[in-house]
Amino acid sequence: MPKWFIPLAILCGLMCATAPILVAQAPYESTMGLVQKVFYVHLPSAWMFLLAAIVCGIASVRYLFGGDSRQDRLAWAAAELAVLFGVVTLVTGPLWARKAWGVWWQWDVRLTASLMGWMVAVAYLLLRKYGGPGSDKLAAGLALFGMANVPFVYISVNYWRTIHPTTNVVPTLPTSFGVPLWFSAAAFLLLFVLLLRLRMRLEEQRARIDALYLSMDT
C-alpha cells in the first residue's frame, strides 16, 4: 500500500463523519423542505458515477492500444465503482423525485441515459466474470462505448426540455447550501480514490498469485 493511503483513509473517515452534521445544519430549502437534503448525497454520487465511467473508459482505451495490464485493473476497479455510485445515484434520485415531481421515476432523457450508463457498467462486470479468457479486451471495448454516454448524460438536461434540474444550479448556489455540497463532494471524491486504489490492489495481488501458480506449474 502507498504511504498516503492510511492518512487519507483516516481523513476520509473524519470527513464522512462530519458531512452529515454540515448537511443537517444547512438551511431548509423553501419548496422541498427536508427532502432537499438528499441532494447532498445524490449530486456527489452522480459526479463520482460519471467520473468512474470516464476513468474506466480512458483506462480501457490505454489498455486496448497500449496493452498495460495495470490500466486493465484500473478499468475494472472503476467499473465496479461506477456500479456502486450508480446505485447510490439511482436510489437517491427517486427519493427526491417523489417529492419534486410526484412520481418515483420519469422516462426523462437524463434519467434514461444514466440508467443505461449504469447498465453498461453492470454488463461490463458480467462480461468480466462470465466471459472467460479474452474478456478483458472485450470489456475494454464495451467501456469505450459506455464512456461515450457520459457527455450525453451531462449535456442532456441543457439541450432537451426535461424536468431534471440543469447544470446551472450548482454555480448559482448560495453559500449556506454550497459549503455542505462541496464538502460532501470532496468526501465522496476521497472515498472514490481510496476504494479505487484498494480494488486495484486486490487485483494486483490476484495477478501475482496467478503468476506464482503458473511458475509452479512449469
Binding site: 434514461t112 441515459a113 443505461m116 447498465m119 453498461v120 453492470v122 454488463a123 458480467l126 462480461l127 462470465y130 466471459g131 472467460g132 479468457p133 479474452g134 474478456s135 479486451k137 472485450l138 471495448g141 464495451l142 462505448f145 459506455g146 454516454n149 450525453f152
Partner: peptide, 27 residues
Amino acid sequence: TLFAAMLIRARSRDVLLPVLLYPITVP
C-alpha cells in the same frame, strides 16, 4: 457487428451478446 465479432472467442457468447448489446443500443 463489433460486439458479435469480439464475443466470438468468449465463453457463453450467446448469452452475453444481448446483455452487452441492448444497454448500448437503447438510445
